[in-house]
């Protein structure tokens, strides 16, 4: 309990720090901060209006205070270009990002764990010699480049998948859930998911493999053999269960990391997610939107880290059940 409380406090501290850094970044950068987001074709009147609207005519500490109060209340301001609340815009695309990320992560980890355990058993054979460099290469490839190659082959050349976006022209949905169950949505999702999965599977695979190799040498696995337990029990119930601990943590961390890495994959596939929102906002100097999108990504990232820590505590009795002599 105390451990969890400490972790939550720490997460809040990091969130506060990041929000503050963001505030300072957007306001203290060299040059006139207004230049970053006010087009010089605007009239002086319009500029003044914007300054007041964003509170930029006030002293910095007042701005900071307001910023923090608004933040806590979940108010991230209005998009400068779209004239809509940032929160609303972010919430609109966040589900797309989560669907993309979670689908890819789940497939990647399911595959990675099984393949990793298998490779551990193949230790010292040619299978291992061939597979490991290939897996490393998938880790070394820029994910957006994988996406480009797949797009060129499977979408443009073979025409199997649409070239981008989340829905075909003319299709609209009444609700997110309706969208989620529509085949058209999944057809658009397929290629980004394949790309992201290929990029993500290397980590759980290599992690699972090295954990398995280590655990299989542990004394309790030898004991399980002496007990005459079945190979299935030995490998799955004892070895894999122990080797799984760090992989489970990596999964939770992976949610944060890949949401944060999604900026490129979503751009390649024009996937309407939060990463692409950030990129377009930054490109078009839509400062409130960029700030909001970034903060949301940070929240997902930091919370995923928190969950990873707690997950480890839940899965490892050595942490969750203190020693009681």
């Amino acid at each position: 309990m105390e451990y969890i409380a400490r972790r939550v406090l720490y997460t809040l501290f990091v969130l506060w720090a990041v929000a503050s850094i963001l505030f300072l970044m957007f306001r203290l950068m060299p040059g006139d901060p207004r230049a970053a987001f006010i087009d010089n074709t605007f009239t002086a009147e319009q500029q003044q209006l914007l300054l007041v609207q964003f509170g930029l005519d006030q002293p910095l500490y007042v701005q900071y205070g307001k910023y923090m109060v608004n933040l806590v209340q979940g108010d991230l301001g209005m998009s400068f270009i779209y004239k809509r609340p940032v929160v609303e815009m972010v919430m609109e695309v966040l589900p797309n990002s989560l669907v993309l990320t979670l689908t890819s992560l789940i497939i990647a980890y399911a595959f990675g764990m099984v393949a990793g355990a298998f490779l551990a058993r193949m230790r010292g054979t040619w299978v291992e010699g061939v597979t490991i460099p290939v897996v490393l290469a998938t880790r070394a490839a820029p994910e957006f480049w994988l996406g480009m190659v797949f797009l060129a082959i499977f979408s443009f050349s073979l025409g199997w998948f649409p070239a981008g976006g989340a829905s075909s022209a003319g299709i609209t949905y009444d609700s997110f859930w309706q969208q989620l169950v529509s085949p058209d949505y999944w057809r658009h999702l397929a290629l980004p998911v394949i790309t992201l999965t290929l990029y993500l599977q290397g980590l759980p695979l290599l992690l699972m493999r090295s954990n398995m190799l280590e655990v299989m040498e542990d004394e309790f696995v030898t004991m399980a053999r002496m007990k005459g337990l079945s190979e299935w029990s030995i490998v799955m119930r004892h070895a894999a269960r122990n080797a799984l601990l760090p992989v489970a943590t990596a999964f939770a961390l992976g949610v944060g990391f890949s949401i944060s890495g999604n900026v490129v994959i979503e751009t390649v596939f024009s996937w309407p997610g939060i990463g692409r929102l950030l990129v377009t906002a930054v490109s078009s100097s839509d400062y409130p939107l960029a700030q909001g999108a970034f903060l949301f990504i940070t929240v997902v990232f930091v919370v995923a880290n928190l969950i990873a820590d707690m997950l480890y505590a839940v899965l490892d009795p050595r942490v969750s059940h203190g020693s009681a002599g």
Binding site: D218, E219, F220, T222, M223, A224, H238, R241, N242, L245, L315, D316, P317, R318
Partner: peptide, 9 residues
Amino acid sequence: SAMNSLDPV
């Protein structure tokens, strides 16, 4: 070493 030979989980 019973510590290492009992499965910790």
